[in-house]
Measured scan of single mutants.
Amino acid sequence: EEKRQVKQVAKEKLLEQSPNSKVQVRRVQKQGNTIRVELELRTNGKKENYTVEVERQGNTWTVKRITRT
């Protein structure tokens, strides 16, 4: 359940930055209360990979860091 929520948060964050792209989740890793989500962003056939680190704060998820990989 929490992985599902985190995927959603990570996707939304990337789509905010580039709204007309397609996002696909590649991998989800958990480390303590930080969850790392690896995503693939496609814009006009151009692929970019991103890693989004999401942290739990109380009962909400906040995006800590977005890295292009």
Rank of each mutant, 00 (worst) to 15 (best):
E1C: 08
E2W: 15
E2A: 07
K3E: 15
K3S: 13
K3P: 03
K3L: 15
K3V: 15
R4Q: 10
R4H: 10
R4V: 05
R4K: 14
Q5H: 12
Q5K: 10
V6S: 05
V6H: 02
V6M: 03
V6T: 02
V6C: 05
K7S: 15
K7I: 15
K7C: 14
K7D: 06
K7R: 09
K7T: 15
K7M: 15
K7Q: 15
K7F: 15
V9Y: 06
V9F: 12
V9A: 07
A10Y: 01
A10D: 00
A10C: 04
A10N: 01
K11P: 01
K11T: 08
K11L: 13
E12F: 03
E12R: 06
E12S: 05
E12N: 12
E12Y: 04
K13A: 15
K13V: 15
L14Y: 01
L14Q: 01
L14R: 01
L14S: 02
L14D: 00
L14M: 13
L15V: 03
L15P: 00
L15T: 02
L15D: 02
L15A: 03
E16M: 06
E16A: 07
E16R: 03
Q17Y: 10
Q17W: 04
Q17M: 15
S18E: 07
P19C: 02
P19E: 03
N20F: 07
N20A: 07
N20C: 05
N20H: 07
N20V: 02
N20Q: 07
S21F: 01
S21C: 02
S21W: 02
K22L: 12
K22V: 13
K22R: 08
K22Q: 13
K22E: 15
V23Q: 01
V23S: 02
V23T: 03
V23N: 00
V23H: 01
V23R: 00
Q24E: 13
Q24R: 15
Q24V: 12
Q24D: 11
Q24Y: 15
Q24T: 14
Q24A: 13
Q24I: 13
Q24P: 01
Q24H: 13
V25Y: 04
V25R: 01
V25L: 03
V25Q: 01
R26W: 07
R26I: 14
R26H: 07
R26V: 12
R26A: 04
R27S: 12
R27F: 11
R27W: 12
R27G: 11
R27H: 12
V28W: 07
V28R: 00
Q29W: 14
Q29L: 15
K30F: 15
K30T: 15
K30G: 14
K30M: 15
Q31F: 13
Q31D: 12
Q31C: 09
Q31M: 14
G32I: 04
G32E: 06
G32F: 06
N33W: 05
N33G: 09
T34G: 06
T34D: 05
T34L: 10
T34F: 09
I35L: 07
I35V: 13
I35D: 01
R36M: 15
R36S: 13
R36N: 13
R36L: 15
R36A: 14
R36D: 04
R36P: 00
R36Q: 12
V37R: 00
V37F: 02
E38A: 08
E38Y: 15
L39M: 09
L39D: 00
L39S: 02
L39F: 06
E40T: 13
E40Q: 10
L41P: 00
L41W: 02
L41G: 03
R42G: 06
T43S: 10
T43E: 14
T43H: 10
T43V: 05
T43N: 09
T43Y: 06
N44R: 08
N44T: 07
N44P: 07
G45K: 06
G45M: 10
G45R: 07
G45E: 10
G45N: 08
K46I: 13
K46N: 12
K46A: 10
K47P: 07
E48D: 06
E48V: 05
E48R: 04
N49G: 10
N49T: 10
N49K: 10
N49W: 13
N49V: 10
N49E: 11
N49Y: 14
Y50R: 01
Y50T: 01
Y50L: 03
Y50F: 10
Y50H: 03
Y50M: 03
T51L: 11
T51H: 06
T51F: 09
T51R: 09
T51W: 14
V52L: 05
V52P: 00
V52D: 00
V52M: 04
E53Q: 09
E53Y: 14
E53A: 06
E53K: 03
V54L: 08
V54E: 01
V54Q: 00
V54S: 01
V54N: 00
E55Y: 09
E55A: 08
E55C: 06
E55W: 08
R56V: 04
R56M: 09
Q57K: 11
Q57W: 12
Q57A: 11
Q57T: 12
G58P: 03
G58E: 13
G58S: 09
G58T: 05
N59Y: 13
N59Q: 12
N59P: 12
N59G: 13
N59M: 14
N59E: 13
T60V: 14
T60Q: 12
W61L: 11
W61M: 05
W61A: 01
T62D: 08
T62R: 07
T62G: 09
T62C: 06
T62V: 14
V63P: 03
V63R: 00
V63H: 00
V63Y: 01
V63E: 01
R65V: 12
R65S: 14
R65H: 11
R65D: 14
R65P: 01
I66L: 05
I66N: 01
I66G: 01
I66Y: 03
T67P: 01
T67D: 08
T67W: 13
R68Y: 06
R68G: 05
R68C: 07
R68L: 15
R68P: 11
T69E: 13
T69V: 11
T69N: 13
